[in-house]
Design a protein around this nucleic acid. Structure first.
Lengths: 345, 345
DNA sequence: CTGAAAGCGCTAACAT
DNA sequence: ATGTTAGCGCTTTCAG
């Protein structure tokens, strides 16, 4: 592997390594003349700085790490794009850790605590174990949370309460009075929040909550935010033999897709027989023509990076927590549009 | 930031830093006694090695980088999972660069050439510019190509020729004689290979190729491997007013989904009126019940890592190129099963 | 078996 | 403005 160092450049250009370093770092105090000489030599030798040596000397690595609950969740992929693009434009690198289990989360958290490895870590949708919270905060290691929360750290979330409220009200405004909910696993905080405000909105509008029409997933994989989860919940709902609600609030797009499949298998039409509003607005939502609560995923990623950079600059700044308000995107699955949903016509 | 170094441990344990290092690296030549002492202190001080200092001293970073053509392509996400899992189990980290343009590819290639930054780079589906080929090979920088090719580097690809052949033969075996193809942009090598062997298989089976029924995408985004591309191609095909083929070979699942949408809008049923076989077998293919040529994406990722590690160990080993044979996955879109496609059942 | 010392390649403080 | 030097934290000879 080629090993051109600043020493080589210094020798060839007849200057000291300090000068070479200055030139390379655009320090103003170098003559244009020597600067040119150094630059020329560096180019000729095809010099590439050694990133780790720089990191070591600068005490800064210019790389961040992101810990996400595995790859297959489209939500993260979209947020990650925002993270990626922002980071790249700033010359930062991103290490991605997909965590499949609680143990792995901890392993990655430990890895990212290795001094110098990364300048900061981004934790997505995962609960931060208390012992790590202490450790990170005591050592002032930059950590920002996305779609999860801890009082000690900056966080970026979506306002699930408002989202659930808007979704439910939309269904209500369409004339539905018997509305069910297909929820993810209550182990997940977003699932709990969405459920709570779904119920509350119903109550506020004078509609009694019928617990029988609320199905919380018992699946653990992805906390029930999966197609299978949605499919099984709806199957269960249909199998119960009870009168099906005329509308459902579904806690994620991906579940809604499973719901759609279950409905279809039973020749129940969407939106004619059952209207659907879901949550997330991932790419797939467009394909399936789902009315859904849109989260500005790209922007969330962008903001996460910004917050992180601020935190790195000011380790002692006040902790902030921003909530993105999701917005309603009306497509076909709720029946507000004349278009039919995807699978019919 | 906590700064426990081997010096701290050495002091507390009354040994030299050399010994500490040896213990930490499991060198055999340390007394069990001193080893225990060091380990205890290290644990008490909650020591974390500084990855970059290690990398600098060891001349090895234990991280790889992957350059992929943007994030939104599901194919890469699935291959990346294979990469990720294999890497993690080996204690390696992965830096991911999503490249949106040719310039970005070059920028990332340059970045990954920075000495010491990464031990090797994985390039996905992107053409390797010749000047980088020279540079990488001259400096013996480990580079492995996935879903792309260059004679100077290890590569892992899928056998597009065989895939196209099997897909076409499957349609033939179902009795179709008027088969069209919806292809991606011919700028992409896989698109060219798939097209060529589609035609050849037809010819071999005594069927004249009708160029009018072959639509090559002119879209550049993602080289035409997109839903929109598939949608427009099929729209165009229908709009031409000519007699529609009874079957289509589509060059990717994602395009097939667009094709499905276009067909649906024209009340053309799948598979009754038109049978479809596509390529890739990404997650979505399952959801849409697509008969498709399955590429072992996870395994490809796994193998890419293995090849890379071998290459790092033996920089002068012979260049290898492995071709994965795609396999046919029969679902509903080809009509071989009784189940209907997606929108019914 | 273990301590001391010499780097790894670079930055930054200190001289000049 | 530029050369020199002291680290950054760790690995790895080299003595002993």
């Amino acid at each position: 592997m080629l090993a051109v160092t600043i020493y080589d450049i210094a020798r060839e250009a007849n200057v000291g390594i300090g000068t070479v370093s200055r030139v390379l770092n655009n320090s103003p105090k170098v003559t244009t003349q020597t600067r040119d000489r150094v630059v020329t030599v560096a180019k000729r030798l095809n010099y590439q700085p050694h990133a780790y040596a720089q990191a070591l000397a600068r005490k800064r690595s210019n790389t961040l790490c992101a810990i996400i609950p595995f790859f297959t969740n489209y939500f993260f992929i979209e947020v990650l794009q925002g993270v990626q693009e922002t980071l790249t434009s700033l010359g930062y690198d991103l290490i991605i850790h997909g965590a499949n289990s609680k143990d792995q989360v901890e392993e990655y958290l430990i890895r990212s605590m290795r001094k110098g490895r990364v300048d900061g870590t981004l934790l997505f949708s995962l609960e931060l174990p208390e012992r790590f919270a202490d450790e990170f905060s005591e050592n002032k290691m930059p950590l920002v949370l996305v779609d999860t929360f801890h009082p000690k750290f900056d966080s970026i979330r979506v306002d699930n309460a408002t989202g659930a409220k808007i979704a439910t009200e939309h269904l209500l405004s369409l004339g539905h009075t018997n509305i069910g909910m297909i929820n993810a696993n209550l182990k997940s905080a977003p699932a709990r929040e969405r459920l709570m405000n779904f119920k509350q909105t119903l109550t506020e509008n004078g509609i009694a909550v019928n617990e029988e029409n609320i199905i919380n997933s018992s699946e653990t994989r992805n906390d029930g935010f999966s197609r299978e989860s949605g499919y099984h919940s709806m199957k269960e709902c249909i199998a119960s033999g009870k009168k099906l609600p005329t509308a459902f609030f579904v806690s994620s797009d991906i579940q809604a897709i499973g719901v759609l499949a279950a409905l279809r298998e039973n020749s129940i039409r969407v939106p004619e027989d059952v209207a659907i509003v879901s949550f997330d607005d991932v790419e797939l939502a467009k394909i399936f023509d789902l009315t859904t609560m849109s989260q500005p995923m790209f922007n969330m990623g962008e903001l996460a990076v910004k917050k992180m950079l601020e935190r790195i600059e000011h380790p002692d700044a006040l902790v902030t927590s921003v909530n993105f308000k999701p917005t309603l995107v009306v497509r076909a699955s709720c029946g507000a549009n004349k278009k039919y949903v995807f699978h019919q016509q």
